[in-house]
Design a protein around this nucleic acid. Sequence first.
DNA 1: GTGGTCTAGACCACT
DNA 2: GTGGTCTAGACCACC
Lengths: 126, 126, 126, 126
Amino acid sequence: MIVLDPGDRRPIYAQIEDKFTDLIVLGVLNEGDPLPSVRQLAAELSINPNTVQRAYLDLETRGVINSIRGKGNYVVDTAKIKEARKGEILSEFREVTKKAKDGGISVTELKSEIYAIYHEKGEGEK
Amino acid sequence: MIVLDPGDRRPIYAQIEDKFTDLIVLGVLNEGDPLPSVRQLAAELSINPNTVQRAYLDLETRGVINSIRGKGNYVVDTAKIKEARKGEILSEFREVTKKAKDGGISVTELKSEIYAIYHEKGEGEK
Amino acid sequence: MIVLDPGDRRPIYAQIEDKFTDLIVLGVLNEGDPLPSVRQLAAELSINPNTVQRAYLDLETRGVINSIRGKGNYVVDTAKIKEARKGEILSEFREVTKKAKDGGISVTELKSEIYAIYHEKGEGEK
Amino acid sequence: MIVLDPGDRRPIYAQIEDKFTDLIVLGVLNEGDPLPSVRQLAAELSINPNTVQRAYLDLETRGVINSIRGKGNYVVDTAKIKEARKGEILSEFREVTKKAKDGGISVTELKSEIYAIYHEKGEGEK
DNA sequence: GTGGTCTAGACCACT
DNA sequence: GTGGTCTAGACCACC
């Protein structure tokens, strides 16, 4: 369900957090769904349970999941997450577009990139 | 000439490197132009000279500048830099566009963002 | 009769204990009154019978109820409970008042809060 | 500067967080002031550096302090903290006052407690 | 020197 | 079984 990218320079816990928010945004995980247990996910990824714990703690702080002692971790609030995520992406998009403008990249070039991505047939990757 | 953003979580040396490549891409710095001396820049930004040193060292490794012992640091090779930078930006742009697609953002929305950025009146600074 | 608050971070057994002492302090439950059976309450709240058992055990240890094998659990000693509870509340009250003082909250502000609470029309529930 | 209460049932990291926010509310720590380094505080309290780290991380997440790699942790935003703290205290105060009302404690009794606390001479404790 | 991440292993509280 | 806290000790990145 979750796969780590060893090439990714970000901390492991951050990758885990992102993967789960992705799963929520994509609609794979829905309100009330349980996350894998701390120990189980740690075993699956062969990392330390503390690292998973930390990721889950962050997710709880951000209001993405609800941790219940002795029971498990459950998704909450998918709507808010999706909205927040959309805002983040748009702000990133604006930033990189500004850089593109400064770097002398033309509007047509950007639009053709968008076209390519939104109309690609096979999902080839992942 | 260079301003640090304390809110930026990236290491200071990385910020410095980026600022200088930005200045090159924007055409403010051109082939042969001198960079401020390590000590002077360190004093200006009130940071440790080691940090500036490291940034300059990285820039030299990447072939952006040329360090001459006892003389100073000089810009080289603006063309290659500009090309490389353009590639980086485009790859970033593709990545964020993919995320936007997954996040359910429409093509029209992206295009309107691009329009807004490319047609905004120059607002002097930042 | 008893309702659990999932938002409450305290352990379920503690919530159950508190609810029953509340019912006693409020005069809903009186000396000799029976508590619901372990199994019945567990079913009602859809929680594990062990959790209810633990709550009842604690209440017995504190001398609030009397467990009779094969018969049930009965309230004892309402007077002592009420006194003890009053002491607890006052000590909590003192503590938070001290914090209020340190936090720069004025006496008038506190008194107006008290006034509001003691004179509010009963708002049925919650 | 910071003292732990072994009798306190709350986790150590939570105690540390509270102590520092207290110091801010009381005006002992002000905007820009540095906190003790992770290792130093850990040594002082003879606890594990990880525990201090966790406390500082939480404080940073809550926007109370600013962690700068290789430099230290610095207080930010004292005004917002003080306001938030005041709100928390008032809400606690309301809650315990309601309990007092339900427990049959009179308004006069509460007011006399307030008087005693706000007018005590020697600060005896801490 | 500083903060940040991770592992290994232990113990506790709760269901 | 579950999540939560803590220790000990290591290594990295940054200043």
